[in-house]
Design a protein around this nucleic acid. Structure first.
Lengths: 337, 337
DNA sequence: GGATGAATTGGAAGCGCTTCCGGTGAGAGT
DNA sequence: ACTCTCACCGGAAGCGCTTCCAATTCATCC
């Protein structure tokens, strides 16, 4: 490339240089048929020589097809800002898949009226090729809106108010059940639960998994306290449990963060883990490996989530009707149980 | 809104309905002057009634001004996929600021030849209003390219091969120095260092901070091992240090991840922390609060990073010349020292 | 050898918006 | 009453690309 021209070359210039019509040049670009080999080569040569890169905006306008998909993460108070790697792993998964297509990724954090209405606009105007919606959408009206937006939408996790046609989810129920069964197998019987928010499908499902296992084993499942995935709520819930059910010999928590604070609360209260009380978490964050004792927890691959969401979205954009996907979870046994 | 029209209304339809020219309607949209109050009102009414939302693509094409900025995260092997909240916090910060503008956020993970060339295209074609470049850019040629791209670019962290005009960075050197001084103040003198990658500015700066403090105190700073921020490298480095300098009484690690594995390695080797050996980290991840013992570390607000990067980018887009920004770090003393 | 149909070709009409620019009318100045 | 402003207005020309469609070329076949 000799001195770069100040302005980006346009398709017209490419066409002129190649001695063909703009139409032909466009055809080469989109490798459409009806172009002779000779012209095709000439155009490609011109493209190379000019360092031509098509203008995505113009293309989008002409085709009325957006070149980007949006990943919307809904969470009341930007949990993205929290200390969990959750969303960044999902993003990594999504980009891996998107990279192979020409699609760009627009990120929208839905945590303010403003960002909400922006997302609504996208949904309404179809200004993106598709939308991935993830985060804690309990009864969020956005979920219903998205579902009937008439554009490709896939969900990460299930909302409560609508049954989405396309979604990817973790086997929350199975995971929680496995953790509880594990405790039972280890001889625990007075097993308490610290739930996540029950106004979200994941929170509910995890709690149901606990109930499932307890029911099968014929154990009482009434030692329950509620949290919201935060550290503070975990501490609070653990204290309440200790207070109301001092006889408990195990705790299954709705996520690692609460499990970790439960762990500390127990230790502070003089209970030995796992000797007196066993503890399990959910998510398998890095931190779970480094608590004292290391935390038994349910692993889920968030990156796989992202990947599958993206793949599913691409399928939907292509007009397919993929089935919902439930990703497996895996119990990781460490010393806390 | 009665039955939604199948197609999105265009500005022409708005104009027609309001009984004005498209030009006038456009002026109202961009609240430009030269429109009478009456027409302005009429147009606004029509917009409301039609549920009109301007087509961003068409606008971008006409103004030749992109409506999005890109956040490019460069990292060899997608550290976004790692278990650190680093990037997601930065993203949260960025979106907070962007939200108040009309700009969209495009995310590009630069970790493959493909994504690299995509970013290069953006840089070359100026297809975004601006670019934020963060991640571990040691000698990445991309940094130099970006700097001379002739478009608004701000860096998160400094590359080694060019001195960027606009960047925000953490006070890595000061933070590491503070941690080391703290150890010295606590009476440690045979202080070892586990560095991060020295082919990155942050890694270098943190190591320099250590050297600074040691020099001022007149202490030997030759107990050094190198890592790359990973758990495995932390373990390896700690073993090497223990081997070569069994007399060490403190370790300052280049990040929390390595500090944590150093902690475990020390414990395994029979050293008590902090009695025999004190340990400090850098970053203040969640995990640092839950190790045994909790880790003394240097806190930096990654969210603030993101915010400031975005703010700086907006300034640059507006034609200003903001000065580089070094964000303060804060030593958090816990039980490991 | 001319008719037939397929493969190519490029002119031109957009996609939905901004903006230059020449034209209007009303109020101000003389 | 007659210019001179000046705010206001809208026609029209794009922005860079795709794509319809009518026209052309060319190989083929009876």
């Amino acid at each position: 490339m000799p001195e770069a021209p100040r302005r980006q070359p346009t398709l017209d210039e490419v066409a002129e240089r190649a001695g063909v019509s703009r139409t032909a040049a466009s055809r080469v670009l989109n490798n459409a048929p009806h172009v002779s080999k000779a012209k095709r080569d000439a155009v490609q040569k011109a493209i190379r020589e000019l360092g031509y890169v098509p203008n995505a905006t113009a293309r989008a306008l002409a085709t009325r097809r957006a070149g980007a998909v949006v990943l919307a993460i809904t969470d009341d108070d930007s949990a993205l800002g929290q200390d969990t790697p959750f969303y960044s792993q999902a993003i990594a998964g999504v980009t891996t898949v998107l990279e192979e297509t020409g699609l760009e990724l627009m990120l929208v954090l839905v945590n303010s009226p403003r960002s909400r209405s922006k997302l609504q606009d996208v949904l309404q105007t179809h200004s993106a090729a598709g939308v991935m919606l993830m985060g804690r959408h309990g009864d969020d009206p956005l979920a219903a809106l998205a579902e009937q937006a008439g554009m490709p939408v896939v969900f990460g996790g299930r909302p409560l108010n609508v049954e989405p046609r396309f979604y990817v989810d973790s086997d929350n129920r199975g995971g929680a059940r496995a953790a509880t069964e594990h405790l039972i197998a280890r001889g625990r019987s007075r097993i308490a639960a610290i739930t996540g928010p029950l106004d979200s499908d994941a929170g509910l499902a995890r709690h149901r998994g606990y109930l499932d296992a307890m029911a099968v084993a014929g154990l009482d499942a009434d030692r329950v306290a509620h949290g919201d995935y935060t550290e503070a709520s975990g501490t609070r819930a653990m204290r309440a449990l200790l207070d109301r059910h001092p006889d408990l010999d195990a705790v299954v928590a709705g996520n690692d963060t609460m499990a970790i604070s439960a762990l500390r609360t127990l230790t502070t209260a003089g209970r030995r883990v796992p000797d007196d009380v066993a503890v399990t978490g959910f998510d398998d964050y890095l931190a779970a490996r480094h608590t004292a004792p290391p935390l038994t927890t349910v692993h889920q691959s968030i990156q796989a989530w992202g990947r599958e969401m993206a793949r599913m979205l691409l399928a939907v954009i292509d007009g397919e009707q993929p089935s919902p996907l439930i990703l497996p979870t895996r119990l990781i046994v460490r010393e806390s149980s």
